Amino acid sequence: MSSENTETRVRILAATVRMLEKHGGRGVRMGDIARESGISRQAVYLHFASRTELLVAATKYVDEKLDVDSRLAPSRAATSGVERLALYIECWGNYIPDMYGVAKALMLAQDTDEAAAAAWQDRMAAMRDGCRAAIDALHTDGTLAADWTPEKATDALWTMLLVPNWESLTKECGWSTRQYIRRMKTVAQRSFVEESAWAHSS
């Protein structure tokens, strides 16, 4: 891809993110994005074959801008399942506030907008992969609590960390980011880690 094409693609993605945040995800059409980007609607379609493809790419663009891979590096380098679980929750808890504008827009639009729903499902699938990696690390270490299977523990951790739950705790209950991270770590440890491994993680 030429530098000009790359620059145009980035302009489109940046415009899409601005439009999502500005309009809460509702009524953001390809023509609107084209006008915001300062290019033709046809040019947008040259880079993105569908609105779904564009919205999925926009969420990944947010990840790139926020350097999500660097944020995840400590959890991926963890030497134990207990450490990986704690570091993943810390990463996620610090990440949500930074991506919340786009997340909120897609959540609001997903019930009536298939493209927004696809983009949000893609992001939540990526988050679930992170949950599964943390739970698998516990299972490999032999520190996953005995009453959990990896599949069910992943289900529970993923549900616990969903953005609407973070939203309720921070926006409605007034928890700070620091409080959210600390308490989610505690709940996760007590739920998913064998009690005999707790002392080693303190």
Rank of each mutant, 00 (worst) to 15 (best):
M19V: 02
M19Y: 06
L20C: 07
K22Q: 03
K22A: 11
K22R: 14
K22M: 04
G24H: 00
G24Y: 00
G24V: 00
G25L: 07
G25P: 09
R26G: 03
R26C: 08
G27R: 03
R29P: 03
M30N: 03
M30D: 04
G31V: 14
G31D: 12
D32G: 13
I33R: 00
I33H: 01
I33T: 05
A34W: 01
A34K: 00
A34E: 01
R35K: 11
R35F: 03
E36R: 14
E36G: 09
S37H: 08
G38I: 01
G38K: 00
S40I: 11
R41F: 12
R41T: 07
Q42P: 01
A43W: 05
A43G: 07
V44C: 10
H47P: 02
H47L: 02
A49D: 13
A49N: 14
S50W: 07
S50G: 11
S50Q: 13
S50E: 06
R51E: 13
E53I: 09
L54F: 01
L55N: 02
L55M: 06
L55S: 02
L55I: 08
L55R: 01
V56R: 08
V56M: 07
V56I: 15
A57H: 05
A58F: 02
K60H: 07
Y61A: 14
Y61C: 04
Y61Q: 12
D63F: 08
E64L: 09
K65H: 03
L66E: 11
V68R: 09
D69A: 10
D69Y: 11
S70D: 09
S70T: 12
R71Q: 12
L72E: 13
L72P: 01
A73P: 10
P74E: 14
P74I: 07
P74A: 13
S75D: 11
R76L: 04
A77C: 03
A77G: 08
A78L: 08
A78G: 13
A78M: 08
T79S: 15
S80M: 04
G81D: 11
G81I: 06
V82K: 06
V82A: 15
L85W: 09
A86W: 05
A86F: 04
A86K: 15
A86G: 10
A86D: 12
L87G: 02
L87M: 12
L87E: 10
Y88E: 05
Y88W: 11
Y88L: 06
I89A: 12
E90F: 00
W92S: 05
N94A: 00
N94W: 00
Y95E: 00
I96P: 00
I96F: 05
P97G: 01
P97N: 02
M99V: 11
M99K: 15
Y100A: 15
Y100P: 04
Y100S: 15
V102C: 03
V102A: 11
V102P: 00
A103I: 02
A103H: 14
A103M: 06
K104P: 07
A105D: 01
L106D: 02
M107A: 08
M107Y: 14
A109C: 14
A109W: 11
A109T: 12
Q110Y: 13
Q110K: 15
D111C: 07
T112R: 12
D113T: 06
D113K: 10
D113L: 10
D113V: 09
E114D: 14
E114F: 06
A117S: 10
A117Y: 10
A118K: 10
A118W: 15
A119H: 09
A119E: 06
